[in-house]
Deep mutational scan, measured.
Amino acid sequence: GPREVTMKKGDILTLLNSTNKDWWKVEVNDRQGFVPAAYVKKLDSGTGKELVLALYDYQ
């Protein structure tokens, strides 16, 4: 199956793709996968990378 990404509340993840309104593709610890968009919030990183903050645990 697809590689699952797990996250804990407060984690910072790299946002790869947010074109789908329900599932965003993120990368964390060299793993890529989809997380519910409602579970993360975009951060203003000030760099080229888009980052998101995990609002809830997800696994």
Rank of each mutant, 00 (worst) to 15 (best):
P36K: 03
E4S: 14
S45T: 13
E50K: 10
D57L: 03
G10W: 04
V35Y: 01
K21M: 08
T19R: 08
L43E: 04
K9A: 12
K8L: 07
K49G: 08
V52M: 04
R31D: 06
L51R: 07
M7D: 02
K49T: 11
L51W: 08
K9P: 06
L55Y: 03
M7Q: 02
D57G: 05
S18N: 07
R31N: 09
E27C: 13
E4T: 15
Q59K: 11
R3G: 14
S18V: 06
F34C: 11
E27F: 06
N20I: 05
Y56A: 11
D22E: 12
V5P: 04
V35S: 00
T6E: 10
L51N: 05
T6Y: 14
V28M: 14
V5D: 02
L53R: 07
T47W: 10
D11T: 05
T6H: 12
V28D: 05
K25A: 08
V5G: 03
V28E: 05
N20P: 04
G46Q: 13
L53P: 00
M7N: 01
L43V: 10
D57S: 07
V28G: 07
K42M: 09
W23D: 02
A37N: 02
Y56R: 15
G46F: 10
K41W: 06
K41E: 11
L43Y: 07
E4W: 15
K41R: 10
S45F: 11
G48F: 09
N17K: 06
V40Q: 00
R3A: 13
T47C: 12
T14N: 07
P2G: 14
N29Q: 08
L15I: 05
V5C: 06
S45M: 13
N20S: 07
R31C: 10
T47I: 13
W24F: 05
Q32M: 10
E50M: 13
P2V: 12
W24Y: 07
S18A: 12
L55H: 03
T19H: 09
L13W: 02
Q32N: 06
P2A: 11
V35R: 00
E27N: 04
K41M: 14
G46D: 14
G33V: 15
V40R: 01
V40K: 01
K9E: 06
Y56M: 12
D57E: 05
G10S: 02
R3E: 11
A54M: 07
K42W: 06
S18G: 09
V40F: 07
T6A: 13
V26R: 00
Y58A: 02
K8V: 07
D44A: 12
L15V: 06
V28N: 13
G46V: 13
E50H: 11
S45P: 08
W23A: 02
V35T: 01
E4H: 15
G1Q: 13
A37Y: 03
G33K: 05
R3C: 14
G33D: 05
I12N: 02
S18P: 05
K9G: 04
Q32R: 09
A37W: 02
L13Y: 07
Q32I: 15
K9Q: 08
T19E: 14
Y56T: 09
D57A: 06
W23M: 04
P2Y: 14
I12H: 04
V28T: 10
N20E: 06
D11S: 05
L13F: 07
F34H: 05
K21G: 08
R31M: 15
L15T: 01
V52F: 05
P36N: 03
D44P: 14
W23N: 01
F34A: 02
L13Q: 01
K21E: 08
D44N: 13
A38D: 09
E50A: 12
L15A: 02
A37T: 05
K9N: 03
K9H: 04
V40E: 02
V26Y: 00
L51F: 11
D30A: 09
P36T: 03
L13A: 06
V35H: 00
L51S: 09
Q32E: 12
E50Y: 09
F34I: 06
K9Y: 04
G10H: 04
K8F: 08
D22V: 13
S45Y: 12
L55M: 08
T14P: 09
K9W: 03
Y56H: 12
G1H: 14
Y39D: 03
Y39N: 05
D22F: 15
M7V: 06
V26I: 08
R3K: 12
Q59V: 14
R3M: 14
L15R: 00
S18K: 08
L43T: 04
E4C: 14
N17T: 06
G10D: 05
N20K: 05
A54D: 00
K41Q: 15
E4N: 13
A37S: 14
G33M: 15
L15M: 02
L43W: 07
N29H: 10
V52T: 01
E4A: 14
K25W: 15
V26Q: 00
K42N: 05
K8R: 11
L55F: 03
V28A: 11
S45V: 11
Q59C: 10
D11P: 00
A54Y: 02
L16D: 00
K21P: 14
V35W: 01
G33R: 05
G48N: 09
N20A: 06
K8D: 03
K21L: 08
D57C: 05
K42A: 06
A54W: 02
W23V: 03
V26T: 01
A38I: 10
Y39F: 13
T14S: 07
L16N: 02
V5I: 15
A38K: 13
E4I: 14
K25L: 15
K41Y: 08
K25C: 13
K41S: 09
S18F: 06
R31A: 13
K9L: 05
W23S: 02
K8P: 00
N29R: 09
F34E: 04
D44M: 11
P2D: 12
G33L: 15
V26A: 01
S45C: 14
A38F: 07
G1K: 12
D11G: 03
S18Q: 09
V40N: 00
V52K: 00
G1A: 12
W24E: 01
D44C: 14
P36M: 04
K42E: 06
D44W: 11
G33Y: 15
W24L: 04
A37F: 03
W24M: 03
V5A: 05
K9S: 06
N17P: 03
G48C: 06
L53A: 05
G1V: 12
Y39A: 09
T19W: 08
E27V: 09
T6N: 12
K25T: 06
G33F: 15
D57V: 04
G10A: 03
G48W: 06
P36V: 04
A38R: 13
D30W: 05
L51T: 09
N17M: 07
G1S: 12
T6W: 13
A37V: 06
Y58F: 10
Y58E: 00
P2E: 12
V26M: 00
L51V: 09
F34K: 02
Y58N: 01
D44Y: 12
P2F: 15
K8A: 08
I12E: 03
E4Y: 15
F34D: 03
W24S: 02
Q32W: 15
D57H: 05
T19P: 03
N20F: 06
Y58H: 03
Y39T: 06
V52I: 05
M7W: 06
D30T: 06
Y56K: 14
V26G: 00
L15K: 00
T47R: 06
D11W: 06
D11C: 05
E50R: 12
Q32P: 09
K25V: 14
G10P: 00
K9T: 06
N20H: 12
G48H: 08
D57M: 03
W23I: 03
D22Y: 15
V52G: 09
G46I: 13
E27G: 07
I12Q: 04
L16E: 01
S18I: 05
K21C: 07
S18Y: 07
G1I: 12
K9R: 11
Q59I: 13
T19L: 08
V5R: 01
K42S: 06
L53Q: 10
A38L: 09
K41L: 13
K25Y: 15
L43C: 08
G10I: 01
G10M: 02
L53S: 05
D44L: 09
K25M: 15
E27T: 06
L13I: 06
V40A: 01
E4V: 14
L43D: 02
K25F: 15
T19M: 09
K8M: 08
L53K: 06
G1C: 15
P2K: 13
S45D: 10
D44V: 11
A38E: 10
T14M: 09
V52H: 02
